[in-house]
Design a protein around this nucleic acid. Sequence first.
DNA 1: CTGAAAGCGCTTACAG
DNA 2: CTGAAAGCGCTTACAG
Lengths: 352, 352
Amino acid sequence: VVTIKDVASKAGVTAATVSNVIRNKGLVAKATEQRVLEAIKELGYRPNLAARGLVQRRGVNLAMLLPNIANPFYPEIALEAEQQARAAGYQFLLCNTHYDPVVSQDYLERLAGGLVGGVIAMEGGIKLEDLEEIARRGVPVVRCLWAELLEHEGRQSVLPGVDFDFERAGELAAEHLLSLGHRDFWAIIARATLDNPGHLYRLRGFRRGLAKAGLTLPDHRVHFGDTTIESGRQAFEAFLESAERPTALFASNDMMALGAMEAALDAGLRIPDDLSTVGLDDIAMSRHVRPALTTVAVPKLELARRATDLLLGQIENPQRSPNVILLQPEVVARQSTAPANPQARRTRGGLS
Amino acid sequence: VVTIKDVASKAGVTAATVSNVIRNKGLVAKATEQRVLEAIKELGYRPNLAARGLVQRRGVNLAMLLPNIANPFYPEIALEAEQQARAAGYQFLLCNTHYDPVVSQDYLERLAGGLVGGVIAMEGGIKLEDLEEIARRGVPVVRCLWAELLEHEGRQSVLPGVDFDFERAGELAAEHLLSLGHRDFWAIIARATLDNPGHLYRLRGFRRGLAKAGLTLPDHRVHFGDTTIESGRQAFEAFLESAERPTALFASNDMMALGAMEAALDAGLRIPDDLSTVGLDDIAMSRHVRPALTTVAVPKLELARRATDLLLGQIENPQRSPNVILLQPEVVARQSTAPANPQARRTRGGLS
DNA sequence: CTGAAAGCGCTTACAG
DNA sequence: CTGAAAGCGCTTACAG
C-alpha cells in the first residue's frame, strides 16, 4: 500500500521523477536517482500495474485462451508461446474455456478490460463475434486453428491467425494406412461441443484419402466422441459390440486414439498386429506409451512461435495488415501401425 | 474506446449515474436506467476493469501459480479450482512458473500490482518471501503443498494453506510393495530444481516404510530425475546398466513412473511379472495406460476445493486466522504391481 | 535535470 | 433519484 508519492516525499522529489527513474528514462541526475532507489528499497515500493496500464492504455500481459487444459495438446503449445512472450518482456496468462462460448466471452470481456495487451485465441467454443469485438476495441488478437470453423460458417475473418490443414491431416492418415495394405477402417471423431466442425474436416480428409483408393468408410464405422481419452475408450468399446473387425482405426486426436488403444488392449486385441491405430496431434504422451502411437503431427512449436510473432507484431505495429499462416501436417510412424495382417485376432482371447 | 462519459452524455446523465445502473445499486429511476442501458447497448460500452480495480483496490480475477503445466497433475487441480472460482464469480488465470523463482517472482509481482484479487500458489520454485511479500501488500494468498519445503528450511508460515502428507505417501508405497512380498527395490526421485526438497520427503517416507520391515534401500538404487516422463525413462535405463534386478520400483511421481515403465517394457521386462511399479499422484493417464499404474493418490479435487475455499474465505474476511489443512494419501492398486515373482525375467529377451 | 498540471476510466461519499 | 467533486496510482507532455 505504499505509493509512488510515498517514495517521492521520502526521497524529497516529485512523483514524476520517481516515475522517471523507475522507467529508466535516463534523464535523472545520478544523485537523485540514488536517493529514489534507496527510498524504493526502504519502503518496499512496487508500482501498481493497473494504474500504469490505465494511463498507458495497454496491459502488461498476454493471454492465451484454450479450450481444455487437460488435453496435453494445448499445454504443449502454451509452453512455447509463453517462452516467446516472456522473452519479449510479457507475462503470459492461460485461460481455460471448456469449449464454452459463455466462459470464453467472459474471459475475453474481462481481459479486454485493461488487463491484457493481447490475446491468442485457440479455436474451441469462442465465438468469432466476441473475438472480433475485442479486436475492434483495440486489443491485438491472433486466432489459431480457426480455418475450418470459418469455412464451415462461410465466413471471412480479418484477424491475423495461424491455421493448420486438418483436412489434409486426415487424408494423410488414410494414405498411411492404405500404404500398409489396410482396406477396412473404423474412425473415432470428436464433435466437441455445439456445431464445432473442426474434427469433421479431419474425417472428411480421411474419407477423401480413402476415396482416392476407391474405398469408402460407412457411417456406422464412425463413432463420435468428445476429444477425451475416456471418450475414445467408450467409442472403441461400442465398436467391439458389432461383429465387424476392421484392421485399422483412425482417431481424430491422440487422446481419443490412446483411449481406443486402452479398450482394444483390454479386449485382448494386439496392436498393431490385430489393429493398426493412428491419431492426430502428436502429443508427448503418444511417443511414451507402448505401443507408441503413430500419429499425424501438428507442428505445435511452430504454431506457438508464429502466433506469438503475429501478436507481438500487431502490438508494435497496429496497422499491419492481417497475416494468415497455414501449417502443414506430417505423419509420424511409430509402433501402433503395421502392414495389414490376415492372421489378425478377431475376438477376445482367441486367435482367428 | 468508449468510456463511461460517452455513455453518460449520450444518455443525458452523469458518469456517477451510469456507474450506478451498471453496478445495479437500485437507486436509479426506471426511466433513467432505461436510457442508460440503451446508450450502453448502442455504444457497445464495456467498463474498463483496470480502472474499476484501481478504485476498488482489488482485482476481479484469481490466479493460480503452478510449476509445470505439462505435468497433468497440475491441470487436474487447476481445472477444479477454476470451477469453484467461476462459481464464485471470479475469473481464473493460470501462470506457469517452470519451477523458476525469478519467473515466479515476476508473476507474483505483476499479479499483485492490481491485476488479481487473490492467488493460489502451488509449491515449486516460488520463494516463500515473495509470497509473503504480496500477502503483506494485501493480496489474499493460499499456498498449496508447501509443508515439506517449510519443514526443510525450518520455517513457519503464517499463510493459510493446504498440504499433503508426502512422507506418509512414500511410506504407503513401501507398505504396498512389502505386502506383495517384494524385498528389493529401486527408486526414482525427482529433485526438481534448486534445493526443492519436496520429493526427498517422499523418498524418506519410502525408506521409513522399508525400515519398519527391517529393510534398507541403498543409495545406488536411487536415481534422481526431474519430474518428467523423459527423466523417468532415462533413470530406468541407467538402472538397467547395472547387473542388479530388484523386483519393484517406486517413482516419486506418476510421470516418472510412466517413463520408467516405458523403458522397462522396451527392455523386454514384463510389468508387473518382472517388475512391480508404483507411482505417486494418480494422474488420469495412469489409469489409462496398460498396464495401468498402481499409485499413491493425492486427493486433487479436494485439494483444489479446499484451496479455493480458503482463498475465497480470506477475500471476504481478511481478518481470519490462517488455516492449514493436511490431506492424506491413499494407495490405488492397479495392474503395475503384483506379488513378487521368483521367476522374474531378468534380462532383455530371455527368461531367467 | 526536476516539478506542476492534467488526465487515464472508473467509483465513492456527500449534497441537494 | 441525480450530480459535483475528489480520488484511486500512475505517466506524459510541457515548463523552467
